[in-house]
Design a protein around this nucleic acid. Structure first.
Lengths: 256, 256
DNA sequence: CGACCTTTTGAACGTATTCAACCGATGTGG
DNA sequence: CCACATCGGTTGAATACGTTCAAAAGGTCG
């Protein structure tokens, strides 16, 4: 499981360019198509060019493999370059709670700053690639590039805001509302990345969706079936087509 | 409701010392008994002395009064100097979700950095006093006092970790487990502030506890009664005595 | 003291869970 | 390449937990 493929991007012992990227331009934040969704979003080109030295390597993570585990020593923040992750925490009784799903441009592990250890486990739900950003480099760079500091604060704060949304979802909504909110959120994030907002593949199982939403997998499955009967979606295994986005919004927004 | 009593701590138009503090030493982070629980925790005396200029005023907030409202423009972070607050968000349908309770030394409003507006509403549950820390000053100071920057990151990250705990609670635990976890958490926080960990006053209503825990107020009340019958606590209205902390841990920890 | 708010408790109800069976898809080894 | 084992998903029936509705008692505050 620990056969990580690491691509060094900075001069060093392993600096030789790997075959698959040798002929083309090297991938940096400046030419990354996810730059406006990631840590350097909002920076001017000059600032971004300086900040992108934060990414000192990339790494492939295969489906099912852990990028990091809860309790591991924190040293780096990871940006999803491609693929899909879940993060989860486990309590004393071994119950897993999925705390989030992550796609291109989103950051993983950042809450490790608090204690010096990762709080959650991050697992790839499909073969993925991530950018490694040592936190020491990030902190150093925030002193040289002020907008980056502001943006780092913003990223952390928005994660808190996101969590408040999840608390609202878990604390006050019924099963079908939760699933509708979940589907709309995925839809909107796919859209922001240039994918279809109405047709996509779920990378996670019903059980993982259920864990995230505070429901059992059977309840998730039943809600999918009910949405399909109502003509709101078409669902076949992991393939989803959203037929009626306003209809889902109506369910998401109100007591039914 | 907006009759805020503001005590200026820095020279300025309203710099005259108010009667109640004129005769004694001025309250600063350096001599605040909450300093190790607050934003300057972990700083050496010299760094703290520099950083404490962040607090440029204090303000009284009376019971029931809002310190800030969701949607208000974000400019300051607030530290609870004395008293007790709740924070909550409201969805489209008007449902309130309490996202946290805050006591001495804890920070309010920090997630506003993300969007430039407060995400939640903060309401005093008893007459309280808070320290006002303009975020512009905080950001400026992090450049002069490196450990402060690290600590600011840490505070934000621990808020995320805390939220993950709440997600676990809301997503995977049953009513009595949730209440046990809640009581133990309060107990531990009172203890950290030098109060009795086994006997305290609940500042919030059953409804607010329920909102926080994703339960109805009747369910909270029943769970209290059941804990009392089991000899785990003595409860009379808002007064709580925890008689059997290990017993509560047992309930908090396991499926019953 | 009276009005109002909070809390408690009971009874009926409803939603999500649990238990179970079955089906389809996926992947592995002979 | 097929057979079989495994995993993920769907659906039904019974159950359990928390909610809803309701009434009444206890506190609090003007």
């Amino acid at each position: 499981m620990q056969t990580a493929t690491i691509t060094r991007l900075v001069p060093g012992v392993n600096a030789l360019p790997l075959p698959e990227e040798a002929p083309t331009q090297r991938l940096t934040c400046s030419n990354c198509n996810l730059r406006e969704l990631c840590l350097t979003s909002g920076l001017c080109p000059a600032d971004r060019a300086r900040a992108e030295t934060i990414v000192n390597a990339r790494r492939r993570v295969r489906r099912g493999e852990a990028l990091f585990n809860a309790g591991d020593e924190f040293h780096s923040v990871y940006a999803v370059r491609s693929g899909f992750f879940k993060s989860s925490v486990v309590d004393n009784e071994g119950r897993e709670q999925v705390t989030g799903f992550f796609m291109g441009g989103e950051l993983l592990g950042i809450e490790g700053i608090g204690t010096g250890r990762y709080n959650a486990t991050a697992i790839a739900l499909e073969d993925s690639e991530i950018c490694i950003m040592p936190f020491a480099l990030i902190e150093e760079m925030t002193h040289q590039v002020r907008p980056l500091q502001r943006h780092l604060h913003s990223v952390l704060a928005r994660e808190i805001v996101r969590d408040h949304g999840v608390m609202m979802l878990l604390g006050s909504m019924r099963a079908e509302e939760r699933l509708a909110v979940f589907l709309l959120n995925l839809s909107q994030r796919f859209k922001a990345r240039g994918y279809s907002p109405s047709e996509f593949h779920l990378r996670m199982t019903r059980e993982e969706i259920g864990s995230y939403l505070g429901l059992k997998l059977e309840t998730v499955s039943r809600a999918f079936s009910k949405f399909q009967e109502a003509g709101l979606i078409e669902v076949q295994q992991k393939h989803i087509r959203i037929a009626d986005i306003p209809g889902l919004h109506k369910i998401a927004g109100q007591g039914n």
